[in-house]
Amino acid sequence: MRLAAAAAVAAALTGVLVTAVPAEAHTTLTSSDPAKGATVTSPAQIRLTFADPVRFTGVVVTDARGGHHESGKSQAVDNHVTEAVAGPLAAGAYTVGWRVVAPDGHPVTGEFGFTVKGGGGTASSAPASSSAPAAPASQPSAGSTKQGSSAGWWWIGLAILVVALAGGGLALVRRRS
């Protein structure tokens, strides 16, 4: 009888834990200046706007050859992040990669491209500051946007917890029998 009760409790607990939905409070990029895929004259700064206030920000501006063009550390005020651009940009395709920490504590990353039209500066690259995040591994086309988060790790942790609880319940039942 005790075994059946313990099994029922374990099954109910497992059902609750497996069907629980994690809170998705990760922020998203709502707009940028320059906008993703835009063709613009050389901007003096990159401005990102998020759905929620963010902290611990990092922004990189890279050209098609991987050269960095950010100047100093990015600045965050509420849900706006700005990054100064190091000098005028030469005509060509550029990628903005960013990483912020959302209000729920999870890091959120993304990237988008824009194009600088004629006139700009020289093609030389400014060295990246040591506090900036690494450049994106791939260079997307000017119109693409990528965003990511660590929500998948939550599910892995939940699965480990369920297995541990089930194993502990079985051990307790066997000890009492």
Score class of each variant (00 low, 15 high):
Ser130Met: 14
Ala90Val: 12
Ala123Pro: 05
Ala128Lys: 02
Val116Gly: 03
Lys117His: 14
Gly169Tyr: 10
Val101Met: 07
Ser144Glu: 06
Phe112Pro: 11
Leu165Ile: 08
Ala132Met: 06
Thr95Pro: 07
Pro103Gln: 08
Gly113Pro: 01
Ala164Glu: 13
Thr145Tyr: 13
Gly118Tyr: 10
Ala93Pro: 08
Arg99Trp: 13
Leu165Lys: 13
Ala123Asp: 15
Ala137Trp: 05
Pro133Ser: 01
Ala137Lys: 11
Thr115Tyr: 05
Ser130Gly: 01
Lys117Gly: 05
Ala142Tyr: 14
Gly169Ser: 15
Leu165Arg: 07
Ala93His: 01
Ala93Thr: 09
Ser144Val: 07
Thr122Ser: 10
His106Val: 02
Ala93Phe: 13
Leu158Ser: 15
Trp154Ser: 00
Ala135Asp: 05
Gly97Leu: 01
Ile156Ser: 14
Leu89Val: 11
Ser144Lys: 10
Leu170Gly: 05
Gly92Pro: 15
Ser150His: 00
Ser129Met: 11
Val162Met: 00
Trp154Asn: 00
Ala171Thr: 09
Ile160His: 08
Lys117Tyr: 15
Pro103Tyr: 05
Glu111Met: 15
Phe114Ile: 02
Gln147Asn: 04
Thr122Asp: 15
Phe114Trp: 10
Gly169Pro: 01
Ala126Val: 00
Ile156Glu: 10
Ala91Ile: 06
Gly92Asp: 01
Gly97Ile: 06
Leu165Val: 05
Ala91Asn: 03
Val96Cys: 14
Ala123Cys: 03
Ala102Phe: 06
Trp154Gln: 03
Thr115Pro: 01
Trp153Thr: 12
Thr145Trp: 09
Ala102Arg: 04
Gln139Asn: 04
Leu89Ser: 10
Pro88Asp: 15
Pro127Val: 01
Gly105Ile: 00
Gly152Tyr: 02
Val163Phe: 14
Ser144Leu: 01
Val162Leu: 06
Val162Pro: 03
Ala164Ser: 15
Ala151Asn: 08
Val162Gly: 07
Pro103Asn: 05
Leu170Ala: 11
Gly157Glu: 03
Leu161Arg: 04
Gly120Ser: 00
Leu172Glu: 09
Gly110Trp: 02
Pro107Gln: 07
Ser129Ile: 06
Val163Met: 07
Ala132Lys: 03
Ser131Thr: 03
Pro133Gln: 04
Val108Ala: 01
Glu111Thr: 07
Gly121Lys: 11
Leu89His: 14
Gln139Cys: 07
Gly120Cys: 06
Trp154Met: 02
Ala166His: 13
Gln147Asp: 02
Ser130Val: 14
Phe112Thr: 04
Pro133Val: 10
Leu158Thr: 10
Ala134Ser: 12
Ala166Lys: 05
Val108Thr: 02
Gln139Ile: 14
Pro133His: 04
Arg99Gln: 10
Ala91Val: 15
Gln147Trp: 00
Ser149Phe: 00
Lys146Gly: 08
Ala91Cys: 08
Trp98Phe: 11
Gly152Arg: 14
Pro133Trp: 09
Thr145His: 07
Phe114Lys: 12
Ser130Thr: 09
Leu89Trp: 03
Lys146Ile: 03
Leu170Tyr: 15
Gly120Lys: 06
Gly148Lys: 07
Thr95Gly: 04
Pro140His: 03
Gly121Gln: 06
Ile160Tyr: 05
Gly143Thr: 12
Thr109Met: 11
Val100Cys: 04
Ala134Arg: 12
Ala151Leu: 08
Ala126Leu: 04
Thr109Leu: 02
Ala135Lys: 01
Leu172Asn: 09
Ala91Gln: 11
Ala137His: 15
Tyr94Gly: 05
Pro127Phe: 00
